Computed example of a mutant assay.
Amino acid sequence: MSEERLITRNRSGRGSHSIPWLFVLAVVLLGTVFFVPTPYYVTRPGSAIELAPMIDVEGGKKDESGAFMLTTVRMGEANLAWYLYAQLSPNAELMKKELVVGSGESNEDFTRRELAVMDNSQKIAEAVAFRLAGYDVKIENQGVWVMGTIEGMPAKNVLQIGDVIVAVDGRPTREAKDLLQYLSTKKQGDQVEVTLIRDGREEKRTLTLAPLPDSKTPGLGIRPDNKQEIIVPKQVSISSQGIGGPSAGLMMTLEIYDQLNQEIDLTRGYKVAGTGTISPDGSVGRIGGINHKVVAADEAGADIFLAPDDAEGPVSNYQEALETAKRIGSRMRVVPVKTVDDALAFLKAQKPKSSYSE
């Protein structure tokens, strides 16, 4: 008996000494899984958010029996855990970092750019909606919007995303083509004085032109867009809750127009989700991650999903959305739209949901 008890104590002792090593091993493994980065971002379904609480139009009405909903994608840097999750989940996918964040661009730059694009999308949505409602809208070019800077070029670490270039060497640059035309008269090594608006203040910077990576022509090294002032006759307040990107343009247009329109409830009692960029002429453009947005809309109980019927890729956003809806067994009706008029025509043709027998 004494020998047996001695053996038991020895075994117990060995086990107690092994516990700390198991704990250390577990901590190391968890640290590896959750803190070791990968060269990927992971994207997955976000949410479907009702727009009426987010948008207020002066003198507008909010008597929708249904709802217009924007849809989002969750995106973040993929640690090893998210990498493994994306390998197993049909509703998550990996994207190489360089396809999400530009060369030399920080996460802060990416966020700033996405919010700037969202702001521009809101203004265009206002313009399109007010024009549809019969109001006069003024659109004036304000300058060249800096939407990114190129690593190793003069603008890097001097200009910021969101800066608006209003003049170069005292010459107005109301749109990107004005900037490009003037710089085409210069040569590598020439210095130019850039006048810009940053956070509402005018500032000046002197930059030395360098050959652009692709064309080798002298330039600043920015990714430009046109900054426009859009003036509508009524006040519009949009609380986008930190959502970035241009893909809510179509749905914001529909919500603003519905608040301006006094004749018909465009929702017809349905939960109408969707996505797509909006252009000043009312055309609807392609977006990324539509498969995730379909899942988000379905989980939120949407009845209808409006999808861009574009020709920019081998497969249109509409076809992607339709395939995803079939894969997850969704009962949503997926509707192709090329313009905001297509969306309005479809919605106006629907019988109110209450007229259907459940």
Rank of each mutant, 00 (worst) to 15 (best):
Y270V: 05
G249C: 12
G244K: 04
G244I: 03
Y257C: 04
E263Y: 05
M252G: 00
G274Y: 07
Y270E: 07
G242V: 12
G276W: 02
S279R: 14
G282D: 11
I243E: 12
S247C: 11
Q241D: 15
P280H: 11
T275W: 06
S279I: 02
S247F: 03
Q262C: 05
T253V: 13
A273N: 06
Y257I: 03
V272M: 07
R268N: 09
L254K: 00
I243K: 06
S247G: 14
V272H: 03
S279L: 09
P246Y: 01
G245R: 01
N261D: 15
Q262A: 14
Q259P: 07
I256Q: 01
N261R: 05
G269E: 12
T275K: 01
L266W: 03
G244E: 10
Q241N: 15
S283F: 12
I256H: 08
G269I: 11
Y257N: 01
G245A: 03
V272N: 01
Y270R: 06
S247L: 03
P246W: 00
I278P: 07
R268T: 10
T253Y: 12
P280W: 05
G282L: 05
G276F: 06
A273E: 04
G249Q: 06
T275P: 05
P246D: 12
T277L: 04
L254Y: 03
Y257F: 15
Q259E: 15
T277R: 02
K271R: 15
P246A: 09
T253P: 10
G269P: 08
L266Q: 00
Q262K: 15
T253A: 13
M251S: 02
G249R: 03
L250A: 06
N261A: 06
D281Y: 02
S247I: 09
Y270I: 07
T277N: 10
M252A: 09
G245N: 09
L250Q: 00
S247A: 14
A273M: 05
Y257E: 03
N261F: 03
T253F: 13
E263A: 12
R268H: 13
G249T: 08
T277V: 08
G282Q: 08
P280D: 13
S283L: 08
G269L: 02
K271H: 09
